[in-house]
Simulated assay, not measured.
Amino acid sequence: MADTSETRSAPLGLRLFPRVKAALEDAAKADRRSVASYVEKLIVADLEANGFLDKGAAE
């Protein structure tokens, strides 16, 4: 079970090609999420799928 007292406090910055950023913004909008929320969703799904993060640990 996830530690519910944990807050999102670790920033992450990255540079993207403008086309990639535009596609990311479109995908986030289609999923009714902010870009940050959408990127977190993608990262968590990949980490869980590859065994780096327990399923549900980031909820």
Results as ranks from 00 to 15, higher is better:
Met1His: 12
Met1Glu: 06
Ala2Thr: 10
Ala2Glu: 05
Ala2Val: 12
Ala2Gln: 04
Asp3Ser: 06
Asp3Leu: 10
Asp3Asn: 15
Thr4Pro: 08
Thr4Tyr: 07
Thr4Ala: 04
Thr7Gln: 10
Arg8Trp: 06
Ser9Trp: 05
Ser9Asn: 15
Ser9Met: 04
Ser9Val: 13
Ser9Ile: 09
Ser9Lys: 13
Ala10Gly: 02
Pro11Leu: 06
Pro11Gln: 13
Leu12Ile: 12
Gly13Asn: 13
Leu14Cys: 04
Leu16Glu: 01
Pro18Leu: 06
Val20Gly: 03
Val20Cys: 01
Lys21Glu: 06
Ala23Thr: 10
Ala23Trp: 07
Glu25Ser: 07
Glu25Lys: 13
Glu25Pro: 02
Asp26Gly: 07
Ala27Met: 11
Ala27Gly: 00
Ala28Ser: 06
Ala30Asp: 12
Ala30Asn: 06
Ala30Pro: 00
Asp31Thr: 02
Asp31Glu: 14
Arg33Gly: 01
Arg33Thr: 01
Ser34Asn: 01
Ser34Trp: 10
Ala36Met: 02
Ala36Gly: 05
Ser37Gln: 14
Ser37Asp: 11
Val39Ser: 03
Val39Pro: 03
Val39Tyr: 06
Glu40Ala: 08
Glu40Phe: 00
Lys41Cys: 01
Leu42Ser: 04
Asp46His: 15
Asp46Tyr: 14
Asp46Val: 11
Leu47Val: 01
Glu48Cys: 08
Ala49Asn: 01
Ala49Asp: 05
Ala49Trp: 07
Asn50Lys: 15
Gly51Asn: 09
Phe52Gln: 02
Phe52His: 07
Leu53Gly: 04
Asp54Ser: 09
Lys55Thr: 13
Lys55Cys: 01
Glu59Asn: 12
Glu59Gly: 11
